[in-house]
Structure formats: structure tokens, C-alpha cells
């Protein structure tokens, strides 16, 4: 089956990178795995209409929106009428990036997405704008605010870890 063969090749070559990008977004390997997997499922469904030369960009767009949608749901619509869920992370956070990962999680989701797209994935402003579904001006402003927020959070995290 040609569709499956082509897609399998794409999956094999891209899944690991997608998972790392998702990790940079959410700071949790389990969730990163889910985000990346869900993104590939969505890409598979559209595969006949995905141009091969833009498949990477499409995957990045899908993944960014899955992440942002999930954060929107949690922030705005979850109705918790008792105690909040226990969040226990069993993630083996890479020690050399521990502070950065923690600090990044304190940056608001859209700003965080802009930072990950621009710096972790090294996308242009235009490419990041397509992935986020916004204007280039918004990407620039979100990136600038995100860097400020990350520096402040990183400083706090770094100080707390040294104390």
C-alpha cells in the first residue's frame, strides 16, 4: 500500500525529532509522546493531500495546535469541583537542561510555542506564524515576551536550585 509505505518512511525519519519538540513544549515525556503520536495520526489521515516538500511544516503545525488546544482546554474549560489532580512526574529530565525545562514551563503556552518554534526548531518567523496560525507580528511579539518571561523564570529557578 503506497500510502502506508510513504507515511511509514516519514514517521521513521521524523518521530524522534517530533517527540523532542513536543517535550520542549510540554516538559513531560509522557505527554510529549502523546502529542507527537496524535500529530502523526492526524497527518496520516490527511496524507494523500500533504505535499511531500511541506510535510515537515504541516507536522509542526499540527503538533503546535494540539499542544495549544490542550493548554486552552485545561486553562479555560476544566471544571474541577474538588481537589486538583495529583501531578506526579516520572520523567527522567535530562540533568543538563533541568533548569531550562522547568523555567520554560512557567512561560505562557503561546509564548512558549513561539520560543520552541523559533529557537528549538530553528524556524523562520514566517514558518512559525504558519504553525501557530497567526501573523508574523504576533510571532515576534510573543517571542520577545517569551524570552523575557523565560529569563525571569530561569533566574528564579537557578537561584532556587543553588539555594
Amino acid at each position: 500500500m503506497r500510502r502506508d509505505d510513504e507515511f511509514s518512511q516519514f514517521f521513521t525519519g521524523r518521530f524522534e525529532q517530533a517527540r523532542r519538540s513536543a517535550y520542549a513544549l510540554c516538559g513531560n515525556w509522557s505527554e510529549a509522546e502523546e502529542i507527537a503520536q496524535h500529530a502523526f495520526v492526524k497527518v496520516y489521515a490527511k496524507w494523500p493531500r500533504v505535499r511531500r516538500d511541506s510535510a515537515d511544516a504541516y507536522l509542526q503545525t499540527v503538533m503546535t495546535r494540539i499542544f495549544l488546544d490542550a493548554r486552552r482546554r485545561v486553562r479555560g474549560r476544566e471544571r474541577s469541583v474538588a481537589e486538583p489532580p495529583d501531578v506526579v512526574s516520572h520523567d527522567p529530565v535530562a540533568p543538563e537542561r533541568h533548569g531550562l525545562v522547568l523555567a520554560l514551563q512557567q512561560v505562557p503556552p503561546r509564548q512558549r510555542a513561539a520560543l520552541v518554534l523559533r529557537f528549538v526548531l530553528d524556524l523562520s518567523v514566517e514558518q512559525a506564524a504558519r504553525a501557530m496560525g497567526c501573523s508574523t507580528g504576533t510571532v515576534k511579539s510573543q517571542t520577545a515576551r517569551g524570552l523575557d518571561a523565560l529569563r525571569a523564570a530561569y533566574l528564579t529557578t537557578d537561584t532556587a536550585e543553588r539555594a
Binding site: 514517521f11 517527540r19 523532542r20 519538540s21 520542549a24 535530562a94 537542561r97 525545562v101 529557537f119
Partner: peptide, 24 residues
């Protein structure tokens, strides 16, 4: 620091291609 995150140490993946194809 952010650019270097692309090379962060990752645990083994638990996603199999078959699983993605099935869900797809």
C-alpha cells in the same frame, strides 16, 4: 540554551509505527 534543547537526552520511545497506522 533553547537551541541545545533539540539534543536533550530522551527516554526510549513507546510509540510503534503499527499503533500510529492503526489509529490513523
Amino acid at each position: 540554551e533553547l537551541r541545545a534543547m533539540a539534543d536533550v537526552t530522551a527516554p526510549p520511545s513507546t510509540t510503534a509505527l503499527d499503533d500510529v497506522l492503526r489509529r490513523g
